[in-house]
């Protein structure tokens, strides 16, 4: 069976934020820095300036879209085509925000803060925070996201610049290895916590449907994979779980505790 994350004991929001910083600073930060070094060297090869690369990282901060931007631009694609393609490939961020923000929302935080923090939500942040959230009290979750996403987002422009200036020194096998780092990392992250049947079924169906549907439509395959695989997994998972109040799967004791507390 799966080994969940080690439990944590946070007493204040400040502690939760630093826990986010600490946990993000290990493997996730390593993956992000390596990936953005790869992106930086790609920007150099494309003949762009370091400013272009750094600003792209700060404003888009979703690597598949950034790579697509550079590749499409160099292929001479019109701006409209670039906008549509990036809008579609990054549309995956929408369900991440919709499933994460309601869980971390906290009374007293002004609305504009959410419109800013959302820039730090991409696959790595989403996966990492989703794994940790069941162990955190509801009032500590926002601080954890702030620490985790904030760290990853803020280091990315620096590594983009480093990759830009090192690009002549990175041998080709290494730069290809840096691209491979991302899918491998996410594959392993998927396997860290397999307690919930819904999640397991969603992952299996997604892994099968993704490449299969891509053969028929490269544009719509991702969206269709998510909706078909995710919906099927949702209903199959509920059948296995049995009807539970609130729709959650097996609860860890902490999670059950958190939910009674949040009722106050």
């Amino acid at each position: 069976m799966s080994k969940p994350l080690p439990p944590v004991n946070c007493n204040t929001e400040r502690e939760a934020m630093w826990l986010g910083v600490r946990e993000a600073s290990k493997v996730p930060a390593f993956i992000m820095s390596a990936s953005f070094i790869g992106f930086g060297s790609m920007v150099y090869d494309a003949g762009w300036t370091v400013h272009h690369g750094v600003v792209t990282t700060l404003t888009t901060w979703a690597l598949p879209g950034q790579i697509m931007l550079v590749e499409m631009f160099n292929a001479g694609a019109p701006l409209l085509a670039i906008a549509i393609s990036i809008g579609m490939i990054n549309a995956r961020i929408f369900p991440m925000v919709v499933s994460l923000l309601p869980v971390v929302r906290k009374p007293g935080i002004p609305a504009w803060v959410y419109f800013v923090i959302v820039n730090a939500i991409a696959v790595t942040t989403w996966m990492g925070v989703m794994l940790r959230i069941p162990y955190l009290k509801p009032e500590h979750r926002f601080s954890y996201l702030l620490g985790y996403g904030g760290l990853l987002w803020s280091i990315s422009p620096f590594f983009t610049a480093i990759g830009f200036f090192l690009s002549d020194m990175v041998p080709r096998p290494v730069s290809i290895g840096l691209v491979f780092l991302n899918p491998l990392y996410f594959t392993l992250l998927f396997l860290v916590d397999l307690k919930k049947p819904t999640k397991v079924i969603a992952l299996v169906l997604g892994a099968i449907l993704g490449p299969l549907l891509f053969l028929f439509s490269s544009d719509w395959s991702l969206l269709l994979t998510g909706i078909i695989g995710g919906t099927a997994a949702y209903f199959l998972g509920q059948r296995i779980d049995g009807p539970t109040e609130g729709g959650q799967g097996q609860k860890t004791p902490d999670e059950a505790l958190n939910q009674t507390e949040s009722a106050n």
Binding site: P95, A207, G229, Y234
Partner: peptide, 29 residues
Amino acid sequence: FSGRVRADGKLVEWVASVTYALLAGLVAR
């Protein structure tokens, strides 16, 4: 959109399920 849904509701669970399938599809591809 997230301001209008309940944190522990079925909609959030469905959206999370869709996201996992979508990401697994992206990674496998």
